[in-house]
Computed example of a mutant assay.
Amino acid sequence: MNNLSQIEALLFVAGDEGISLPDLITMTGFEQTAVIGIIDDLAAKYDNDLSCALEIRETDGNYRLVTKPMLGTVVKQYFESPTNATLSHAQLETLVIVAYRQPITRIEIDQIRGVQSSGTLQKLAMRHLITEVGRKEEPGRPILYGTTVDFLDYFGLKTIKDLPPLPDLDSLDVNDDTEGELFANPFAVEPERK
C-alpha cells in the first residue's frame, strides 16, 4: 500500500463530510507538506484521467472526493429515478435514527448502524427529508443532521413531537422477522382499537 492510496482511502471513507488536513496527518503519520503533496498528486491524477469520475474538493478546511461536474446530469438522474422513489431499508433505518436522535452526526449514525451512512444521508438530503442543522463543537466540526418540514409532511406529522414512541427493544424478542417489522414503517400509527 503506497502513501497515495492511504490518503485516497481516507478521503473515500470520510464521505460527504470530508476530512481535515490535521486528521489526515494524524491518521497517516505523514508530515503536513507530504500530505498536501499527496493530495495535489491525487487531484492531478483525477484531473488528467478523463475516464475518472472523481475529483478532490476542499471546502471549509475539509477535503472530499466528489463526482466531476460534467457528470451532474447523470448523477441527478440517479437520485430522481423512479426506482429511488420509495425509501430503502437503509434509508428508513437512517431516517429513524436522525428523527429520534437529532441533531446527530454521520459518525454517530454510523456507530449506531454499524455501517457507513454517507451515501444514504446524501439520498435523504436530496429528497429533502433531512438537512444540515449546524456543526458539532468538536475537532473536525462534523455536520449535524436533523429532519425537515418535508419529513413531517412525508409521514403526516404536524411536529416532531408527534413521532410515535420507540418500542422498548429490551422487552422485544428481536429476531429477523421482528427487526424487519420495526423498520418496515417505523412512523406508522396503529389504528385505534374499539
Score class of each variant (00 low, 15 high):
D60L: 15
N62Y: 15
Y63A: 14
R64F: 12
R64L: 12
V66F: 08
V66G: 03
T67K: 14
T67W: 12
K68Q: 14
P69T: 08
P69H: 12
G72H: 12
G72M: 11
T73V: 13
T73E: 13
V75H: 04
V75M: 13
Q77F: 13
Y78M: 14
P82V: 10
P82N: 09
T83V: 10
A85K: 11
A85C: 12
T86C: 08
T86Y: 01
L87P: 03
L87W: 09
A90L: 09
T94Q: 07
L95C: 11
L95F: 10
I97W: 05
Y100W: 09
R101H: 07
I104Q: 03
R106C: 01
D110F: 00
D110V: 00
Q111T: 02
G114C: 05
V115C: 00
Q116K: 01
S117D: 04
S118N: 14
L121M: 12
Q122C: 12
K123W: 09
M126R: 10
R127T: 06
H128C: 12
L129P: 02
L129E: 06
T131N: 10
T131W: 05
E132D: 10
V133E: 04
G134S: 09
R135S: 14
K136G: 03
K136E: 08
E137D: 15
P139D: 09
P139C: 07
G140Q: 06
P142H: 08
P142C: 08
P142A: 07
I143N: 00
Y145F: 15
T147R: 00
T148P: 04
V149M: 13
F151D: 01
F151H: 05
L152Q: 06
D153C: 08
D153P: 02
Y154A: 12
L157S: 03
L157N: 04
K158I: 09
K158Q: 15
K161E: 15
D162E: 10
L163V: 14
L163A: 04
P164I: 11
P167E: 03
D168Y: 09
L169Y: 10
D170I: 07
D170N: 13
S171W: 01
L172M: 12
D177I: 12
